[in-house]
Amino acid sequence: MKSYALIGAAGYIAPRHLKAMKETGGTLAAAFDVNDSVGIMDSYFPDAAFFTEFEQFNAHLQAEYYARRALDYVAICSPNYLHKSHCAAAMRFGAHAICEKPLVLDPSDLDDLIEVERQTGQRVNSILQLRLHPAIIALRKKVAEADAGKIWDVDLGYFTSRGAWYHASWKGLVHKSGGIATNIGVHFYDMLAFVFGPQTRSIVHHRGDDAAGGYLELERARVRWVLSINRDHLPSHTPIGQTTHRSITVDGEEIEFSGGFTDLHTLSYQSILNGEGFGLDVVRPSIETVAHIRTAPIQLHKGEQHPDLAKVIG
């Protein structure tokens, strides 16, 4: 039975990690969060120790687990800007890290974690669950089996409404979240590279506090993309009452992958336990993409804009 610790137990994504630990036969030894609304733990691991001070959490792990090498993994669901330091801390506890996306905010952070891996002999595993989604795997197979010279035309639009709280939280601060493209888009960029090959060109059409849009060229695809958390940006064809709109079309054909998300974290954990997790080398391309989007000059090119970008720009 594998033993886990959890950083960020009160966060939105933490229940998926708790479920994955349970369903893969693990046990939670200890958890940490600065907030104490963690009643969800009772549904999975009611006997796990819990701390609201990182120093106490650290001391507990050092005293109870480090000396016996009894802690196998630390799952990290903390705010984006803390991922690097928490991954490093996990490895220095003598455990492997399992970290939510984005793994880090800048490519140089990956170099620092590579050094900690070398020093400790531990490993960082990133949650990239779209790579495990059946629809994405099928699309990748379709692309691989097509004529080698074929270039696919892709439109990616993701609109997920968020209230005023978003901008008051760490998610609304670029230096903590990385901005819209990093916070809600990084797993899409990883998925696109997984399916269509490495990126060769990136242009940013719009970058704001609530939305971003641009154009990517990959080895096998041309991608027009737009992301937004502003409900006023929802496309006009969004059904009344629906607050989220997600669409990926490939050569005009919609790729349906809204279903099947429930168990992807469990699949991710099982892959990690099987020695098939996604390491730092796998993560680097998507981190380089979002770092570029964060700082690139704004350019508008006709014919390269996502059809729904006009409403976002206004």
Rank of each mutant, 00 (worst) to 15 (best):
L105K: 03
G197P: 09
V195M: 04
I98A: 00
G121I: 01
A144Y: 09
D147L: 03
K176S: 05
W170N: 05
Y166I: 06
S169P: 10
A211K: 01
L18D: 03
N274G: 09
M191L: 05
P297D: 10
A49N: 09
S85V: 09
R222L: 07
G11P: 00
V226Y: 00
G179D: 02
G25S: 08
F32Y: 14
R69T: 15
R162P: 05
V174W: 03
A89P: 10
K150T: 14
E53I: 08
Q299T: 14
S228R: 04
H245A: 04
A31Q: 07
P79N: 04
R294D: 04
Y158P: 01
P235S: 09
E219R: 14
A296G: 04
G163I: 05
G172W: 05
R224F: 04
L18F: 09
I248Y: 04
V204I: 06
V312I: 14
A31L: 15
F32E: 01
G213H: 03
G94D: 00
Y65A: 15
V290Y: 01
D106H: 15
G157M: 03
R68T: 14
V154D: 00
N125E: 05
I293M: 12
H301I: 15
L300P: 06
R201P: 13
T182V: 02
D209N: 11
Q122L: 09
S228L: 04
Q305L: 12
N274F: 07
H306C: 02
L280Y: 01
R162A: 14
P297F: 07
R118H: 14
A29R: 15
P239K: 13
V250C: 08
T238Q: 10
T249V: 08
D36C: 11
G259I: 10
G11N: 02
L216Q: 14
Q299S: 08
H206M: 13
L18Q: 03
H233M: 11
M191I: 07
R231Y: 10
L309I: 06
V223W: 01
G163R: 12
G314Q: 08
A291W: 00
S43A: 12
A75Y: 02
H233A: 06
K84F: 10
A291S: 10
R220E: 08
Q299D: 12
I293F: 12
P235A: 11
R123C: 13
R224N: 15
F50G: 04
V290K: 00
A75K: 01
I272C: 05
V34P: 10
F93N: 03
F54N: 14
R118P: 07
P198M: 11
D112R: 13
A5M: 01
T24E: 14
A31D: 03
L300V: 07
D33K: 02
H17V: 10
I40V: 15
G260S: 13
K176D: 13
V74I: 07
P134M: 06
G197Y: 13
A97T: 07
F194A: 06
P198K: 13
T27E: 10
Q129W: 11
G241W: 08
R294I: 06
A193H: 07
G11M: 02
S268C: 13
R220S: 15
Y44V: 05
D72K: 12
D232Q: 13
H96D: 09
H292E: 11
G26E: 01
R201D: 14
A144T: 07
I240G: 11
A29C: 05
D153I: 01
E53Q: 15
K171Q: 13
Q62E: 15
F261I: 04
L192R: 11
H265V: 11
I272A: 05
P198C: 12
C87H: 03
L71F: 04
